[in-house]
């Protein structure tokens, strides 16, 4: 009985849906506030992300004639579920719901499901904008995913473990891996921006070019779920980087540990916000160029060096 209760608690409250929802809203607010401040604006009040979510949930849900209704309803749910599942394996403040050797690979796999669902959503919702956006999102997926995976494999190889919590725990005894592998950390950040489709890599949903990309025809609850998926994905991605490169909570499951973890997460969030204010949106061919000519060779070099040092 208590076993069931703890599972339910982990799924719905911590570190499951409730906690992630709160984090997503808070991170979104901080992100918008920081970006606004850098641009000389004030930014939205704290309840704005919540208000946006409630507004979208209450709005009428329409799909164009010819769109695959079952798929369009299932895709946001599947991607949200995938992101929430991935969160179960990521330690938050040193505390983790589930862990086993190799959960990093599972998490990375689960985090790539929204990208594929996003592409399918564009393909199945009969608008030319979403078709173009969908093909762009697939091209973008191939550009960032390879360097991102190679960058994340660095900490795993160095620690000799594919379990996120064990990689994090090892760093608290030694040194943060971001200091050992600054290049890997940078590549992982760039990859994360691509994964989250944030500016300057918001190419698949470029507003001034293809309206809203694959999500053009979505509205109401489905759009709310899509937005929630993106925002929770941001939280999960940031937590993942904190654990892999910044040593997680450093001092295990204590109150200062949670605080330290939060500060590190905010640091990465800040870097994402600054990056989105710093650049113009790239073109998809420019991103593919950067991905394959710059990021992928760098990540490969980093990985080979890690294997050589770690193995030697």
């Amino acid at each position: 009985m208590t076993e069931w209760l703890s599972v339910l608690f982990a799924l719905l409250v911590f570190p499951g849906f409730g906690f992630l929802l709160a984090c997503a809203l808070a991170f979104q607010w901080i992100d918008r506030r920081v970006e606004a401040r850098l641009q000389g604006r004030v930014g939205p009040p704290w309840f704005q992300p919540l208000a946006d979510l409630i507004k979208l949930l209450a709005k009428e849900d329409v799909l164009p004639v010819g769109a695959n209704e079952i798929a369009c309803a299932a895709l946001p749910m599947v991607s949200l579920a995938a992101v929430l599942t991935a969160a179960l394996y990521i330690p938050v403040g040193g505390w983790v719901a589930r862990t086993f050797e190799g959960d990093l690979i599972v998490v990375l796999f689960l985090l790539s499901i929204p990208a594929l669902a996003y592409f399918l959503a564009g393909w199945l919702s009969v608008s030319v904008y979403s078709v173009v956006g969908g093909s762009r999102s697939l091209l973008q997926f191939f550009s960032y995913e390879v360097p991102f995976l190679m960058a994340l494999s660095g900490p795993a190889i160095l620690s000799g473990s594919w379990s996120i919590s064990r990689i994090a725990a090892q760093q608290s005894q030694a040194v943060w891996l971001a200091l050992v592998q600054p290049l890997g950390f940078l590549l992982a950040l760039v990859g994360l921006i691509g994964k989250l489709k944030r500016s300057p890599f918001d190419i698949p949903k470029a507003k001034s070019e293809i309206v809203a990309g694959p999500l053009t025809e979505f509205s109401g609850r489905k759009l709310a779920l899509w937005h929630l998926t993106m925002h929770i994905q941001m939280v999960v991605g940031i937590f993942l980087l904190v654990n892999l490169f910044l040593g997680g909570s450093d001092v295990g499951v204590t109150i200062p540990g949670v605080l330290i973890f939060g500060i590190k997460a905010l640091f990465i969030l800040l870097m994402l916000s600054v990056a989105s204010a710093l650049y113009a949106r790239l073109r998809i061919d420019q991103l593919a160029n950067i991905g394959w000519r710059v990021l992928a060779p760098l990540a490969l070099a980093q990985m080979l060096a890690t294997i050589w040092i770690g193995g030697g």
Binding site: Q39, G40, P200, D202, K207, S208, A277, L278, A280, R281
Partner: peptide, 16 residues
């Protein structure tokens, strides 16, 4: 122009 190329910061600065 800045907004069209996704450079919101320049958009905000120019209009400011």
């Amino acid at each position: 122009l800045a907004e069209y190329i996704g450079f919101t910061t320049i958009f905000m600065y120019a209009w400011r």
